[in-house]
Nucleic acid binder design. Structure first.
Lengths: 114, 114
DNA sequence: AAATCACATTGCCATACGGTAATAGTCTAA
DNA sequence: TTAGACTATTACCGTATGGCAATGTGATTT
């Protein structure tokens, strides 16, 4: 049951869609998201799991937070992040599936219709 | 039936996922995709529908083509583009729904857990 | 063959963005 | 209150990217 396919979207809608996809368009942010798929994590834990610098992790988390993709709670010294938008699971699954399909289709040499 | 959620992905997989999402992370490319949701279009038609310059349309279409999101066929002077990856419909629907939900949740003032 | 049409490509510029280092802020423990 | 742990923010730099203008390429028409 497609909700929006083919409908005309406003300029603002296209902007919002773009920004949202952009939040998922960086490997490091995807790493953070996938780490959070197992459950809540502190920033320190995410730093460990991703191998990135703390400043970068915080910066990326901030963007994900502003986009509503993750949520945050503070307890003591720690900040706990979690997936706040369950849609993310389906989005990543779909995209991974699409990539798989594309790789399958390209077995035995690439084909570019031209 | 989630296919990949929570699984560990390789560095390369995260890169591919990121690149693919990046293809959808620009308003102009989303406009092109939405125009193609009604069916095949020539470059000229897309230029008209989007109001963008022909050079930009061609450049964006190239990226979508390389990502396997659109397909292309040439006939005479024209190049006809079409959606090649049906996953795009679901992805955009899901994302639009997610945005809707977020806007709904924010009625009556923004809330940022901090 | 020359002109024309449709599209692709290239170079340029301004902006955006990621990584890094340094600093600031906040909470806890002593 | 001072020190230390955890997180956020800022400034800086190099790269990537989008829009634009100009040019290149291939097919069609005359």
């Amino acid at each position: 049951m497609a909700r929006y396919s083919g409908k005309d979207l406003s300029d603002e809608a296209f902007e919002m869609l773009g920004e949202r996809f952009k939040a998922l368009a960086e490997p490091m942010r995807l790493r953070l998201i996938y780490a959070l798929m197992d459950g809540e994590r502190t920033v320190s834990e995410l730093v460990q799991e991703t191998g990135a610098l703390q400043a970068n992790v915080s910066k990326h988390l901030r963007m994900l937070l502003e986009e509503g993709i993750v949520g945050r709670r503070k307890q003591g010294l720690n900040a706990y992040y979690r997936i706040a938008d369950p849609t993310i699971f389906e989005l990543c699954d779909l995209m991974c599936g699409s990539i798989q399909d594309r790789l399958q289709a390209n077995l035995g040499g690439f084909s570019r219709s031209s």
